[in-house]
Nucleic acid binder design. Structure first.
Lengths: 201, 201
DNA sequence: CAAGATACAGAACAAGTTGTTTTGTACTGA
DNA sequence: TCAGTACAAAACAACTTGTTCTGTATCTTG
């Protein structure tokens, strides 16, 4: 790739990130991005069709990086060790976040964090499916599999969000503990109505 | 309130809802709302300062209605019956949604559903706090109370979202069952590290 | 029912945004 | 070195936003 192109692309991403951490996405104009990146108007539109496409590509750049490395981790498919494997994947993600590659933390804690948390969640779903669901490990519960996958991924994203909003005071290990406690029953595959200790009706 | 004012206000809300169920919030212009509502430009701005304020008031109208009735329900503070009370509050909310007052379901399932789910969640948090947290019922867990409240409310919202996206095929009772199974451990107040069956490390 | 108050419609306005086109310049890679 | 490419700058139409003005219709209350 042409050095000029890469330089411009980086400048746009960088400028966009700066603006995103300061003000609402909807209220950021293309003109502001252009000014912050110090490029010409034509140049911006040569790189990105619209502001929305820019956001999409930024998200892909950020999260594909994170989840791809997690995808590479070997999934352990023994039922007991499953919890350790789960642990290691989620713990790995938290540690990765803590390193704050690409200044992703600013985006996950700013006014626009919901945009990025949404992307994070959808990537996480794919990760969980590839690690567990494909092997049928999530099928032993009385809950529907897609309900389960959604519950686990959204719980993790909410956990991360909670952690960041508390300035990440706790170590990643503690957060992993919280998270696993919260979703423990569904991972254990228990919860069939007959055996359940509680009776809702 | 002046009949003319109420009529205009309703026309704006109605037009806005129609547009929201069809296209992305960001791409709806004030002019489109004006045209759909068949009112004058001046009139719109006499009622709402901006499109964002209109959204805010619409959300308040929708969700205050729902949670206010739930707030009125008597909270049962016995530890065992707690689960039934929880049950009845959440089940009540689901049944309420099923009745589709104010055509809220269209908004919860359209392209803009995240906007409304966010509002729903924040109202839900207040509801949970007023019903349980204020009495210290959520303090017996090893998880931080605000983490718990967030986990419960977001899990419920995700459950609702999952339900709607599946065209609400299951009865509200079944969904309540799913939800309570998913969050069972945190409500049981167990999960103290010492007694927990799983060891993350 | 009359009369002052109020809500509304319509038009016009400046200021800003979006996405495109055109022209000329500077850089890159082979 | 040189052809191809990326870029800057300026101008453009079409659209959006929020305001102001003028005149009309409707409401409330006395």
């Amino acid at each position: 790739m042409d050095r000029r192109q890469q330089k411009t692309r980086d400048a746009i991403f960088s400028a966009f990130s700066v603006l995103l951490s300061k003000k609402n996405y909807n209220r950021i104009s293309v003109q502001e991005i252009i000014d912050e990146a110090n490029i010409g108007r034509t140049t911006f539109y040569a790189h990105f069709e619209t502001k929305d496409f820019l956001l999409k590509e930024l998200c892909e750049e950020l999260f594909n990086h994170i989840t791809d490395t997690a995808m590479g981790l070997p999934a352990n498919h023994n039922n007991y060790i499953c919890k350790c494997a789960t642990d290691s994947v989620f713990l790995h993600l938290l540690k990765h976040l803590q390193e704050n590659d690409l200044n992703i933390l600013e985006l996950l804690s700013c006014e626009n964090n919901e945009i990025f948390l949404r992307y994070f969640k959808s990537n996480l779903k794919r990760l969980i499916i590839s690690q567990y669901a494909e092997n049928g490990e999530l099928r032993n519960s009385s809950l529907p599999e897609d309900y389960l996958i959604n519950h686990i991924s959204s719980s993790f994203v909410e956990t991360v969000s909670w952690w960041i909003s508390h300035n990440m005071k706790e170590p990643p290990e503690k957060i992993t503990e919280y998270f696993l406690q919260a979703i423990e029953p569904v991972l254990n595959g228990k919860g069939n109505n007959e055996n359940s200790a509680f009776r809702p009706f």
